[in-house]
Amino acid sequence: MSTDLKDALFGYALRLGDTSLVLGHRLSEWCGHAPELEEDIALTNVALDLVGHARMLLTYAGELEGKGRDEDRLAYRRDVFDYRNHLLVEQPNRDFGHTIVRQFLHDACAVEMYERLCASKDETLAGIAAKAVKEVRYHVRHSGDWLVRLGDGTDVSHAKVADALGRLWTYTGEMFERDEAEQALVAAGIVPDPVELKAAWTARVEAVLEDATLDRPADGWMQKGGRRGEHSEHLGYLLAEMQFLPRAYPDATW
């Protein structure tokens, strides 16, 4: 693999890994506080899967980079501007409806991406995708079912998820952004084409929104910057909490 391609793949694995980690972290904030015991367990399950994906992806990113950074070095010793996650996943939980909308918009993209990544010409990435896709298929069913329940539930629940959809839609464009590095990976058959992904995502999202009796928001201005390390104010607090121990005790192993 050429150095440029390797750098591009490092960036891609890092973005996927960071996105999984930050979303897994957000979901883990629900642990012990969900609306129902079954849902507490379900959200924790998804959080566990996502942190599991992050571990595989960050480990691989570290190997590609070749500077000796392992999953923990990458997770715990980078500041906001070195994180590459999508802005969508760092948005705070707010309420359960907001959490579900955020999750569904992400899951619908992740499932389409991992389905295609299983056929990646990069064996390691294909292996990670083969494992992750089984879990992500369940995630999208879970978040989609809840979105339908809440959208087509009571007036209160409908209003809450409609509001969340309006707030979060602006972060969806970034998931399908194209840049030169990614184009090179697409051309090499290593990652799926974002154009194709967006079409598949749109079809999935529209079908669920219809069942949920929710209107699809208009595609207005899209917030971007995650892949360049330009984040919202929320990520800094999340990292401050997550990284507290390794930062406070830099010489310790745990």
Binding site: S28, E29, C31, V51, E71, L245, W254
Partner: peptide, 23 residues
């Protein structure tokens, strides 16, 4: 401590443990 576990391995183990308790 779920959001402050010091390594990803510890984070997964703690989440799984708390989930077991819910179970």
């Amino acid at each position: 401590w779920v959001t402050r576990a010091p390594t990803l391995r510890r984070k997964v183990a703690l989440l799984a443990k708390v989930q077991d308790e819910g179970g």
